[in-house]
Design a protein around this nucleic acid. Structure first.
Length: 827
RNA sequence: GCGGCAGUGGCGGAAUUGGCAGACGCGCUAGGUUCAGGACCUAGUGGGCAUUGCGCUCGUGGAGGUUCAAGUCCUCUCUGCCGCACCA
């Protein structure tokens, strides 16, 4: 091999070597401190994109760094392999989803390997493999037996284009998260996970996660949407109870009407046989139609209709009309609200539109609301008025007293409501883990016995052009025996939401070959929690909430000990080109393959880590990529240029420092170690870590250029080169290993201990202080590092420049900031 | 509307605890050196004014304030991005 930086040859060589040496294989070792580093596993779409490269490059730096710091690092990789694209490809090209998926996995695995990521490939999992989904099914059964999985008929979100139901979380702007098609409501019987049982803990335990971004915690907390209030029992004149949930029970004296959601079961009952029956039915029909199309409109007009019925306010005994309106949601609270137009903007708009009365029951301090003219509701705190014995109380107190009153008199009670819904996991799709349930005419829904798992997904299937699941027509799959009575029975043909599969994969990595259970408890106890999780912020709610739910549920069932899955979370920014996210439709995609081909994996990694801090968006810049390539060439020339001089890595003695040049280089060396260590370990600021290494390289060049060959301190240079390669190792592993082999005679830079710095070496004799006059820098002064404040002050005041500026003015005071500057204040 | 984040040269970004704004890199300019080929080396590079000097001055979205000292703290305000959005 010549002396040029031949990245292609080098990268291939070391990837092969590391694999042969099994350098990244790990075992549980109670003697050693563990570190579980995890990046979100990819969907095997076929090709790695820059987002993956960024995610996994960040992770690999941390993994390699922690390893060099002596930790036992678990760094696994796998495939989130079930999902719709495989089926779409099957319908389009006739390739079976399984074949398509495994081909993609194989080619993406090769691409990951060509980046030099240090995964323990022996722990690889794929959620579509029977050895994996068998345990997904098994976990479903555990949830089922513990009352956390149930079947229920309800109005669900249906995507007519994907031919499946969607979880609440997968509905974005009233459309399908995947294809954007407007979602419609259908009444279906579906399998659900009782995540609402964990609502409070999911919310509370966010406090146990100081290592998560505030943004993600806020999003989860908003999604859970906890609100404290009171449920009050209103009663219709028909005798039917109409409970309402409110957070403003202190305004109950201001209720002038009530509103039911259009889907509320009482609507039909109270209108049946009355003159209102037909108009209400027409209205509901109209609502249902707009529901499907127009719900995305920004400010849809509040619309409603009187039902002809009345209810009684249990606190006042007042008779109030019952309306229906589009702004009341059946899914939240009780599907009915008490309307207080003076203190709720929606109620006020509605009241004004339909001429309903407005009554003020809270007066703000120093104001006097007029119910006849007010155009904006007053939702704030004030003093209760027109509220019987509660009048005169400030809002917080009124809330307490009235809640007590309501409870004492049996009119209702305090209640906590959540926005979070149970997790609907049934999917009417083929390419997913079959739900292990059998339907028997005699016995009903019967869980598949654990010993019969897995319920295999048949792989030779034919797709209907309609996109309907082939499982429905697969006789062999469909027909079975009832495990209870042995009679003929049918299998559930729905599969599980792929988010179920990804809600526990981090546990499987801890014991991927375990055959007796989903997770080996001893091993997961050693490895869990994940110390650092890295991935895109787009999973802030769905995946991260589901994984937290699973962890808590499995802990309660006794399968694991962890309460939270991910101790620290880093959400990386997007990779942009020309200011926009890379996408095929915009034509601004840069493929990782091209970059690896042109500049090598080390350059790709270096650029992506150098161009921006990991949590920020990163703008792709071809020229800056070349800049990184030039830097690696510069490193290459530096080390190979001195190769003969600095050969040999056996001596561990510190070099003897003689000249001031030596001292300078030595100080830079220790300074760089300190800086890079801090940047990588505390802050994950790889961009500044790399700039530190660049300065170090510049410093070594300076030394070589300014010191004659025979005057160079060879032990010092040796140390400098070794430290440089160790610092580079986590970022650009291949070139670091190649150059290490060249100067040390054998490979192994990644097995070295991370360098430490000597605080002594950082100490200098003199330091340069900035000299300010009235806060502006006017001069610099060199002072002894031991100089006292008085000595420094004296020295500064004696400076020509300072004396000139002071002139006849008076020195008011002199501020000396040690190590930094001196400010002379004059007047 | 509510919540979160951000705004610094031509560009990506530094400034970790209030202490020299612009590290490092890209780009650009000039010079050198090879042109064996994605070069390399040296010097310069925020604006304006001076450039026979070493200096002066303005400058971190905007306006105020606190301080000897503010990108950093406080008040108000503008802009952009992201998330949620009839949740009673």
């Amino acid at each position: 091999m010549g002396n040029r930086y031949n990245f292609k040859e080098i990268e291939r060589k070391w990837q092969k070597y590391w694999a042969e040496e099994s350098q990244y294989k790990v075992y549980e070792d109670p003697e050693r401190e563990k570190y579980y580093l995890l990046e979100m596993f990819p969907y095997p779409s076929g090709k790695l994109h820059m987002g993956h490269v960024r995610n996994y490059s960040i992770g690999d730096v941390v993994a390699r760094f922690k390893r060099m710091n002596g930790l036992n690092v678990l760094h696994p990789m796998g495939w989130d392999a079930f999902g719709l694209p495989a089926e779409n490809a099957a319908i389009k090209h006739g390739t079976p989803p399984s074949k398509w998926t495994w081909q993609n996995i194989n080619s993406m695995r090769e691409q990951l390997k060509s980046m030099g990521f240090s995964y323990d490939w022996d722990r690889e999992v794929a959620t579509c493999h029977p050895d994996y989904y068998r345990w997904t099914q098994w976990l479903f059964l555990q949830l089922y037996h513990n009352g956390l999985a149930y079947k229920s008929k309800s109005a669900v979100n249906w995507c007519p284009s994907c031919n499946t139901v969607l979880a609440n979380e997968q509905v974005v702007n009233e459309g399908c998260e995947r294809c954007g098609t407007a979602v419609i409501k259908r009444d279906l019987e579906q399998w659900m996970f009782r995540i609402t049982k964990y609502a409070d803990r999911l919310l509370q335990d966010l406090e146990l996660l100081p290592g998560w971004p505030e943004k993600v915690k806020t999003m989860q907390s908003n999604w859970i949407g906890r609100s404290e209030g009171v449920e009050i029992k209103f009663t219709a004149e028909t005798g039917d109870p109409i409970p309402v949930f409110t957070t403003r029970h202190d305004t109950v004296f201001g209720v002038t009407y009530m509103v039911l959601a259009p889907e509320h079961p009482l609507v039909e009952k109270v209108t049946r046989g009355t003159e209102y029956e037909k108009p209400v039915r027409d209205f509901l029909e109209k609502m249902r139609r707009t529901d499907e199309t127009q719900r995305t409109a920004e400010d849809i007009e509040k619309e409603g209709m009187f039902t002809g019925a009345y209810a009684v306010n249990p606190l006042t005994g007042e008779r109030i009309p019952i309306w229906i309106a589009n702004y009341v949601l059946m899914e939240y609270g009780t599907g009915a609200v008490m309307a207080v137009p003076a203190h709720d903007q929606r109620d006020l708009e509605f009241a004004r539109k339909y001429g309903l009365p407005v009554r003020v029951v809270v007066q703000p301090d120093g104001e006097d609301l007029d119910p006849n003219t007010m155009t904006e509701a007053f939702p704030g705190d004030g003093t209760a008025v027109n509220s019987g014995q509660f009048s005169g109380l400030p809002t917080p107190e009124a809330k307490e007293k009235m809640a007590d009153f309501i409870e004492e008199n049996g009119l209702g009670g305090r209640k906590v409501n959540y926005r979070l819904r149970d997790w609907l996991i049934s999917r009417q799709r083929y390419w997913g883990a079959p739900i292990p349930i059998i339907y028997c005419d005699q016995c009903g829904a019967v869980p598949v016995p654990e010993e019969d798992l897995p319920v295999y997904l048949p792989e030779d299937v034919e797709f209907k052009p309609t996109g309907e699941s082939p499982l429905k027509y697969n006789e062999e799959f469909l027909h079975t025996e009832c495990p209870e009575c042995g009679g003929p029975a049918q299998r559930e043909t729905d599969t599980m939401d792929t988010f179920v599969c990804s809600s526990w994969y981090f546990l499987r990595y801890t014991s991927p070959y375990e055959t007796g259970t989903a997770v080996n408890k001893e091993k997961s106890d050693y490895w869990m929690n994940v110390d650092q999780y890295i991935g895109g912020v787009e999973h802030a709610i769905l995946h991260l909430m589901y994984a937290r739910f699973f962890t808590k549920a499995l802990k309660d069932i006794g399968l694991i000990s962890a309460n939270e899955p991910f101790q620290n979370l880093l959400t990386q920014g997007m990779v942009l080109k020309d200011g926009a996210k890379m996408s095929k439709s915009k034509g601004n995609v840069v493929s990782p393959e091209e970059i690896i081909e042109e500049f090598g994996a080390d350059t790709a990694r270096l650029f992506i880590l150098f161009a921006a801090p990991p949590d920020r968006d990163l703008e792709w810049n071809d020229q800056a990529v070349e800049g990184c390539y030039r830097f690696l060439n510069r490193v290459w020339r530096l080390v190979t240029g001195q190769e003969e001089l600095v050969k040999g890595c056996s001596s561990t003695d510190d070099p003897v420092i003689g000249t001031s040049r030596d001292k300078e280089l030595n100080r830079l060396l220790h300074h760089t170690v300190k800086r890079v260590t801090n940047d990588v370990s505390d802050r994950f600021n790889f961009n500044t870590a790399i700039s530190g290494i660049m300065e170090f390289v510049n410093g070594i060049y300076d030394y070589i250029e300014n010191v004659d060959q025979d005057a160079r301190n060879i032990p010092l240079l040796k140390q400098a080169f070794q430290v440089l390669l160790k610092l580079l190792a986590p970022f650009t592993p291949h070139i670091a290993e190649e150059l290490w082999e060249r100067i040390c005679g054998k490979p192994g830079v990644h097995l070295q201990s991370w360098p430490t710095y000597d605080p002594e070496a950082l100490v200098v004799d003199t330091i340069t202080l900035a000299v300010q006059v009235n806060g502006k820098v006017r001069d610099h002064v060199e002072v002894s590092v031991n100089a006292s404040q008085d000595e420094i002050q004296e020295q500064v005041l004696a400076l020509d420049r300072v004396r000139e500026l002071v002139g006849s003015k008076k020195v008011v005071k002199v501020i000396v900031v040690p190590q930094k500057l001196v400010n002379v204040v004059i007047k």
